[in-house]
Structures are given as C-alpha cells and as structure tokens.
Design a protein around this nucleic acid. Structure first.
Lengths: 218, 218
DNA sequence: ATTATCTTTTTGGTATACCAAAAATAATGA
DNA sequence: TCATTATTTTTGGTATACCAAAAAGATAAT
C-alpha cells in the first residue's frame, strides 16, 4: 500500500472517531475520501493486515496503537502546516486546509519540529483543533459547542468543526474569529437560534452554525 | 499518468539536457530515476502522447514547449524550497535537496511566490543553480566550476557542490569562503592542479576540489 | 416478524506503474 | 565490414488503487 493512501485512511478513521474509541463505518470513510465503498472495504482489509487497524467485517474499524500513532503524526503535520501557512505566510484560514492536505504527506520530523518551534510549539491550530506533540499527546480541552452554551455567560471562540470555505467565510463576515470573546444574550425558543454579542454587535447564529462553533467558558 | 510521475520525468529530462535542446537518452533517465529501462520506454511513450515531449524511437527525447514549461515550474518549486529550507529554516545545504524533492510536488503558485518573496525573489539557489521566475524565465548563469577557469582572470567564489564537513573545513583553512575574490595564477600541466591567489596568499587546489567550487568571473 | 432500506462485501474489470528477460536495434572497434 | 557491446524495445507478468453492479448482511419500520 502506498504511504499516502495509508495516511489518508488512518487520518480519516481518526477524525471520524474523534475520541479514538468509537468504531467507524465504511460509508463515512468512503464519503470523506470520495471513494467507492468497494474500494474502502478493500483498503480496510489491507490496513488490518498491516496491523494499523482492527477491522471486523460488517462491523467497522478501530485504530491499533501503531495506527493511532501514525494518524496522530499526520494530524500533527497537517495542523502545524496550517498554522504556519496562516501565521507565518499570511494565508487565510479558509485557504490553509487544502494546501496542508498536500504538505502533510512530506514526512520529515526535523522540518515539522522546526516549524512548530518557530510558531512557539502551539497546542491549537487556526481552526481551534488541538495539535498533537511529537509523541502524539493531545492537550485535552474543556471546549463545548456554541449550541450547548448557557444564557448570559461569556465564552471565547476556540475553533470550528466544519472547515468548509462557505462556513469559514460566514464566520469571518460576523467577526467570529478564533479568540473572539462573546456573550450569549438570548436563545430563541421557537428555533433555538442564538443571539450573541460579539465586538459590541448583536449577531444571530442559526442552530446549525452554532453546532459547528467550539467555545470555551471564560 | 500520475502528476508526480510526469513531473519527475520532465524534471529529469530537463536537467539532463541542460541547454534544453540536446536529446536525452533513456539509460540516463532510468539511472536518475532508479527505474528499469523498460519502464522508461513506456513512460516516454506516454509523455509523447501527452505532448510533453517529442520522443523518437531509439533516438531520444526532447521537451516540447508545454513540457519545458512544466519542467521549469517544478525546478522553480524545487529551488525555491531548497533556498527557503536553507535560509529561513536553518537546514544545511546537504539536507535541503531530499526534502525539496518531496515539497516540489505541492503545486500552489501563491505558496511558492510567497516563499520567493520572503527570500527577496532570488535568482540563484544555495548551490548556485538559477531559479526560474514565475514565467519560466531563467537568468543565464555565468557561474562556472573553478576547474573550468582561465589563467590570470579574477573570480568570486559563489558556492560549492560538495557539502561534506571535510571539504568545508578544507576550504575554510584556505580562506575560500563564499564571496572571496581569487585570481587564477597557474594551472599545473602535469596534474591540472590550480594555484590561485586568495587574500594575498598563494593556495594550491587539487583538480578534485576545483571541480566542487563554483566561481563567477568578475 | 417481515418487508423495505441502507450498508457492506464480492465479483469482475480497468488503468497505472513498475520489473525481468528476451528480442531488436544502434554504436563501436578491430 | 562484421562481430562485439551497449542501448532500446517488446513481451509477459506483478501489485496497487480504483470502480460498477450484483449479492449478502444488517437495520429499521410497520
């Protein structure tokens, strides 16, 4: 199996079972990687042979220790590159994902560590996602979705779970950038949309959008 | 044909016919890319179909305009990355080639132009090789090897092609640092060793060493 | 419990990128 | 020129990564 293929599968499996214990189903992997389900079945069989995953027929996949290690390494590379592109090279946070998707496959520990060091060894990337350290350790967070927040409390925007360009542009338009402080003013009864104060302006957020925004209580 | 495969062939063909007019033979391509000659024959046939090269059976290959354009683009990416790795990220000149070999396949014009801009849009890379501009234009280099110099003329040391510690220490001992001005005094008939004046001192350079030192006529 | 639906797997097939060994073609040297 | 050597091409074959469509298996809905 080509290294890039392996890396794309493992990364996807990791991301689809965020807590890294849940079993992932083939359909979702196929969707994420834009592959035919038949291809995924085949791929997972091989990854099982290579001992990167435990794959049980018609049930799903779970990363092994070695698979998890590789997945975290790829995710580290991806997120370090995203951060570097945004912070050091002036790319917008809606642009960095696509480029990092390619750069992440360049496997050179010294390079990634050098970039990380220039960035001050960040723990979160521009989307608010945690960056694993060299050993694969991830900073556990007390982040919640905006849709789970309580009235009148103050929060800081920490990240997003949807990385589509449309969504990122939508956020930018409302000044909901990473690090922004917000106050939850109202939660509408009839549609659960949220009215919040951000930079002294009132912003109305749909429940769908609120479900994709990660905040931290402050 | 996969993009990476195409790029590796075109880059190699370009580098093997440095003036870009000479016809390249298959064996050399096979050697450079560590491929079986049979594979190369096949590859060249496909590149001909794709109109990247003109390939005449049992004769050789020459890049077309579109092939040359792609080759120059890949070479630009490679040399910009090499320079960036060396100058901005602190890698040694002996390390940058291998990493750039992977990074060069990430095709993002904005990224490469940004790196180039940070570097001050350099025209030469750390090895003294010219960097094509965005349009593929190359600054014709007047860099030559010390072993190709003419008697009595003055030169400036511009780079080296051997980056081993032993060689670099040897150069340092003779004050042959980058930027040093030299005058070629004698070229010994019996062994082609070169006697030159550097910082008012006479230095004797072996033909092997002279072959690894890049100079420019001044 | 039994359809109906959704998911997964199997089957049969394509395209790419490679190789080893044999055959054909050039190039070279006596 | 003709034999020797070097290079290139052909032939036959492998492994990977994919897909479409059919078959099998699981899940949900009434």
């Amino acid at each position: 199996m080509r290294q890039e293929t392996i890396e794309n599968y493992l990364k996807t499996i990791y991301n689809l079972s965020s807590n890294n214990t849940a079993v992932v189903n083939n359909q979702k992997i196929a969707d994420r990687l834009s592959l035919n389900p038949a291809t995924v079945t085949e791929g997972l069989r091989k990854l099982h042979e290579l001992k990167y995953i435990v794959y049980e027929k018609s049930y799903g996949s779970r990363l092994t220790t070695s698979g998890s290690k590789l997945a975290l390494d790829i995710i580290r590379r991806h997120r370090i590159w995203e951060t570097y592109l945004a912070k050091e090279l002036g790319f917008g946070w809606d642009e960095v994902h696509a480029i990092a998707e390619e750069l992440e496959h360049v496997n050179n520990v010294k390079l990634i560590n050098k970039l990380a060091s220039i960035l001050g060894n960040p723990i979160y990337d521009p989307h608010g996602d945690p960056i694993p350290d060299e050993k694969g350790k991830i900073q556990k967070s007390n982040f919640i979705k905006l849709s789970e927040t309580k009235l009148k409390l103050n929060y800081k925007v920490m990240g997003v779970t949807d990385h589509s360009t449309t969504f990122l542009k939508y956020l930018e338009k409302h000044n909901l950038i990473i690090g922004a402080n917000i106050n939850v003013k109202t939660i509408e009864d009839f549609d659960n949309s949220i009215v919040l104060i951000c930079q002294k302006k009132e912003v109305n957020i749909s429940p769908k959008a609120a479900d994709c925004i990660i905040v931290q209580s402050i």
